[in-house]
Design a protein around this nucleic acid. Structure first.
Lengths: 214, 214
DNA sequence: TAATCTACCAAACACTTGTTAGAAAAGCGT
DNA sequence: ACGCTTTTCTAACAAGTGTTTGGTAGATTA
């Protein structure tokens, strides 16, 4: 009920206290650096001094650009999820058939991993603890939309006879979801495989399996 | 009497420092509690006071049983990996055909998740940072044996014509590995699915895919 | 009963943490 | 050159961290 502060989209302060105006470009630059450190060391193990080190400045200087360490994390994840849903919504609006929808969602996911691999890695490691905090409510919301989009697609596929009906749908959902996103833990951009190529191989395994058809 | 037992296989202690002799049962009990807290909150976010709280004692009292917070983590992971390899080695010694080996390894993995879900969750979150430290060298060793066992099985399967040869073997390895172990993040024992049942469904998806065969 | 051992508590330690406030540059239009 | 704004540094803070030390209740042994 009592929210302590506002930070992201609302610069105007309460009474009197005019704020500084840090440049958004520098902000993004610093957030990129912070995201890399967060992803590599974990959020809690990352001190603001380490971030500052990586950015070539001192710890206190970060607070000219950001309210707190936590608000850096929040902005990183929020930016990622916003762009992710931009892509997903585009796919869902197209109203393709279940199989094509699944293929498009998976491909889109690998593109997002390619563009936001640090944020994805952070998300995977920290989301579970963060959803409990009210400040990160949007994580829970996103997870619910996510589950709904995937489950609906799978169930429609089963109903239309393109996906197997002898599998637990919820288990299949977790299966597909996890197989896609854990790739962020080892994927490195420019490593020989393009996102689309990885998506193609993953889809081939998820849809048809790794065993030879007899 | 005079010479106390050594905790694990850690290098020989310094001169003179005689140790107490805490009971191994209490040790295991406390490690189980610590593992749960580590798994839920993350290692770095877990303070020794939280562990002590969960155990109904004070922070300092933990140091009667353990050298440090880190050595608790080490013992948790080492115990898990030891038991894991007990199971894996049993499977590998049987020298089944590639497909049966894969099925047995996956099933064994889900059994270990069932028995050590906290340790598995910790492993997944922290292993990446820990392998850098020399104290956790055995993590790197285990990962290498792990990769070798899986890759060999997959490649033998391809050679014998039971696994598809149009897939990147290394990608397939990561695929199988990740799909199995991330299950620890949502699996809860006694949740309707037995480890064997989950293994069966996962294997069905990994081997044959989720799409209907035409 | 006295001596010893086990397992814990109580209180502090040195250090790191995120964060703040004021001073000092650095940049820039005039 | 100047004033003004934007950015960083210096230097500290209070709270929290893992850990150590010495003490002590209760069981076990002599």
């Amino acid at each position: 009920m009592s929210k302590p502060k506002q930070s992201t989209s609302t610069p105007p302060r309460g009474p009197g206290a005019a704020r500084q105006s840090p440049s958004p470009e520098r902000r993004r630059e610093l957030l990129g650096i912070a995201a890399d450190v967060f992803a590599e060391q974990g959020y809690n193990a990352t001190t603001v001094r380490k971030i500052a080190d990586a950015a070539g400045m001192l710890a206190g200087s970060l607070y000219y650009h950001f309210d707190s360490k936590e608000s850096m994390l929040e902005e990183i994840l929020r930016t990622f999820l916003t762009e992710l849903w931009d892509g997903y919504d585009g796919v869902l609006r197209a109203e393709l058939d279940p199989r094509a929808t699944l293929e498009a969602l998976v491909t889109e996911s690998f593109r997002e991993i390619d563009r936001h691999r640090a944020a994805v890695a952070i998300y995977q490691k920290e989301a579970r603890h963060l959803v409990a905090q009210e400040r990160f409510q949007y994580l829970a919301d996103s997870q619910q939309r996510f589950e709904k989009a995937w489950l609906t697609t799978l169930e429609r596929g089963v109903a239309e006879g393109v996906f197997r009906d002898d599998l637990d749908t919820r288990l299949a959902y977790r299966f597909v979801r996890d197989t896609v996103w854990v790739a962020a833990s080892w994927y490195r951009p420019g490593g020989g495989h393009s996102p689309e190529e990885i998506a193609r191989q993953y889809l081939s395994m998820v849809l048809d399996g790794i065993s030879v058809r007899t």
